[in-house]
Design a protein around this nucleic acid. Structure first.
Length: 308
DNA sequence: AAATCGGGGTG
DNA sequence: CACCCAGATTT
């Protein structure tokens, strides 16, 4: 029993130390409350979708231009999809742009144009999963929620569990641990969410954590264990990029974005000829896949273009 | 649980 | 050149 109580006290210390650090060290990100102009819930939702697997630095300029052009769900809902995909530019995973527009349409249809604060309703929106729903509730509405992104997973893995990195896939045990750490008070919970993410992004980083500047270094189970290496290192292997179908799709999309009208297949074949790592067969797979996904269309003349 | 889906900055 | 980034969706 006393051991369990000691752990409870230790976790409370972790939370307060991280939040105090955050008060000093937080980045001034434009989608955060208190950074000048107050972001709307929609602006925050847009930032969360853009930040799915895409670093802050690359999102920021696109987010600004995006909200200047489409400040509300209603505005995005009626925009030409080709414009939406061009504005998405090279953030990657362009299906997210498609879903974000569908999300805007759903918000207009189901919620009168306002972002809902209910978890079920948020998760029912296209492109909104467990993380994004929790983040929007916390950051846009100040609601208590369990916000677990890649940063939080890593911070908890180190500080609490004592491992270098979390397991490759998100486990129920991790979710339970994260939930147990969330403060009872809603405002405290939202602050903890932002602070724990920020610690992972700035200090407790994947590559070379700066433990010297860490507010919880003396409470960290991983440090206490001597900072052992990642146990799953052998199983992690990033997908190759050069010559993959993924690169092929991306290349086609970049051509369609750059062309302000339908594109002849001959033009795409020229591009292919100029990039030896792309095999001829990949062009057809990329085109049919993109059409399948609603990211491209073909006109009567057989030319390709972004969806209207 | 595993596969798929971009793209670029960085050590 | 491998690794990582405020994940979601489908199989």
């Amino acid at each position: 029993m006393t051991e369990a109580l000691a752990e409870v006290a230790r976790r409370a210390q972790v939370r307060s130390a991280v939040v105090r650090w955050f008060d000093e060290a937080a980045r001034d990100l434009p989608w955060r409350a208190g950074s000048g102009k107050e972001p709307t819930p929609w602006a925050i939702l847009v930032s969360e979708v853009m930040l799915q697997q895409t670093p802050v630095a690359r999102v920021e300029p696109v987010w600004r231009a995006w909200l200047a052009q489409w400040p509300t769900p209603a505005a995005l809902a009626t925009a030409p999809t080709a414009d939406v995909l061009r504005a998405w530019d090279r953030l990657g995973y362009p299906r997210r742009a498609l879903r974000l527009q569908e999300c805007a349409q759903a918000i207009v249809d189901r919620h009168g144009g306002g972002v809902p604060d209910d978890e079920e309703q948020l998760r029912a929106l296209p492109g909104v999963g467990e993380y994004t729903a929790a983040a929007v509730r916390a950051f846009a509405f100040g609601r208590r929620s369990v916000v677990v992104d890649t940063n939080v997973r890593r911070v908890l893995a180190r500080v609490v569990s004592g491992t270098a990195l979390p397991a490759p896939s998100y486990t129920a045990a991790e979710r339970a641990l994260a939930a147990a750490l969330v403060p009872d008070d809603a405002a405290d919970a939202a602050r903890w969410a932002a602070a724990s993410m920020e610690l992972g992004a700035l200090v407790c980083t994947a590559r070379s954590p700066e433990c010297l500047g860490c507010p919880v270094a003396d409470l960290c189970a991983w440090r206490a264990a001597g900072s052992p290496p990642d146990a799953h290192a052998a199983r992690r292997r990033t997908q190759a990029w050069a010559g993959t179908d993924r690169q092929a799709r991306g290349r086609v999309m970049s051509v369609l974005r750059g062309a302000h009208g339908p594109v002849d297949r001959a033009l795409l074949e020229e591009v292919w000829a100029g990039e030896p790592q792309l095999r001829p067969g990949q062009l057809d797979r990329a085109l049919s896949g993109l059409i399948e996904d609603g990211l491209a269309e073909q006109d009567e003349a057989g030319r390709y273009h972004l969806p209207a």
